[in-house]
């Protein structure tokens, strides 16, 4: 066995023995060695790791000065050369949990070391920090200290040694909400047949992916009076001027654009092409109105069906686009429409 793994531990004023709520404004400090629950943690580590320092702070003071305190404390432990940082366990204490999460995130970012904390699953810190650091679920109160510390120590050692982790359920931490690729002993075909047989026989089965659910939005109010409304047209079908001058990506696009249709009665064939990497573009290239129906809208505009067609169309490529990017682009487009006084938009989808 090489040298012991060096651990820094974060706790609050209560577990440091300074005091309860009346001492929640206690200033941050660093102490050498294990303090309070750190001793239980040290016992769980045995000879494999050593708590070289403990950092602590009052819960109120930390949360009111979170960025500064976290930066200061992490700067103070740089010389301790920790291989791992453990915070808490904070059980169901909200402010303590948030402090634990924050200190872990900053330690991970600044020192590049693995970080883990322990909180009750219902502690708000669980949801906030599980995407960024390892969060071990614990009981609700300090009465569950022993049950909390053992799995934290076990996971901490694995992390510090850089071992490949199994699933959150196997390793005892809360899922981050992210997914990674792994290799397993059986082919997908074999797993598929076996999973199906379990379902058909009424035996318990475990899907490899749970169906996601999307946000729901309350329907927007109707356009009040079409006769006085500016209406826009747009597409996720990637219609762009020929040559794609703005280099909208054919898949996983990050860009969107508006293209002027001022004074145009139609989108002329040859003037536009599809930048989209997900459908056969021949039909829309032959007549771009099949994707962005400017010609039909102009006729309806002249006939008085609505006041005015906005003088540019909106375009992006909706192919393999992550929801986060789509949300961002949608928000940016909507802001533009509001600024421009557009009351409604017709968006074509492929």
């Amino acid at each position: 066995m090489s040298e012991k793994i060096r651990v820094v531990h974060y706790i609050n004023q209560f577990f440091a023995g300074i005091g309860g709520e009346d001492k929640a404004d206690a200033r941050p400090e660093r102490r050498a060695g294990a303090v309070g629950p750190g001793r239980a943690l040290q016992a769980a580590f045995g000879q494999d790791a050593e708590i070289v320092a403990t950092i602590l702070c009052g819960d109120t003071y930390f949360n009111e000065n979170a960025d500064r305190v976290a930066d200061d404390l992490i700067a103070q432990i740089a010389d301790d050369k920790p291989d791992l940082i453990i915070a808490g366990p904070a059980f169901d204490s909200g402010r303590y949990g948030m402090a634990c999460g924050k200190i872990c995130v900053v330690a991970h970012e600044k020192l590049g070391i693995p970080a883990l904390t322990g909180v009750a699953p219902e502690n708000p810190a669980a949801e906030v920090y599980a995407p960024y650091i390892y969060v071990v679920p614990t009981g609700g109160t300090a009465a569950k200290m022993r049950e909390a510390v053992a799995p934290m120590a076990r996971l901490g050692l694995k992390l510090a040694r850089g071992e490949t982790l199994g699933t959150p359920a196997q390793e005892g931490y809360l899922p981050s909400g992210k997914r990674r690729n792994v290799f397993v002993p059986e082919t997908a075909a074999k797993r598929g047949v076996q999973m199906l047989l379990r379902k058909v026989r009424g035996e318990p089965y475990e899907t490899e992916l749970r169906v996601p659910t999307y946000d729901r939005v309350t329907p927007a109010n109707p356009v009040n009076d079409l006769k006085h409304a500016t209406i826009a047209v747009g597409t996720e079908g990637g219609t762009v001027p020929t040559g794609n001058p703005d280099h909208i990506e054919s898949v996983r696009a990050t860009r969107w654009q508006t293209y002027s249709i001022l004074g145009m009665d139609t989108l002329a064939a040859g003037g536009y092409e599809s930048a989209h990497g997900g459908y056969d573009a021949r039909f829309a290239n032959a007549d771009p109105n099949r994707m962005v129906p400017v010609d039909a809208l102009r006729v309806l505009e002249k006939g008085g069906a609505f006041a005015e067609l906005y003088d540019a169309f909106f375009s992006t490529v909706g192919c393999g686009m992550p929801i986060a990017t789509g949300t961002e682009i949608g928000r940016a487009m909507a802001n533009r429409m509001k600024q421009e006084g557009i009351e409604g938009i017709i968006i074509t989808a492929t």
């Binding site: 459908y279 007549d287 099949r290 309806l300």
Partner: peptide, 21 residues
């Protein structure tokens, strides 16, 4: 259809425009 949400290449241009309207 997916490649032409506001088009119908099976129709002649005049009827296609009517449909699109």
């Amino acid at each position: 259809r997916i490649p032409h949400p506001t088009g119908d290449p099976t129709q002649d241009p005049e009827h296609e425009l009517e449909w699109r309207k």
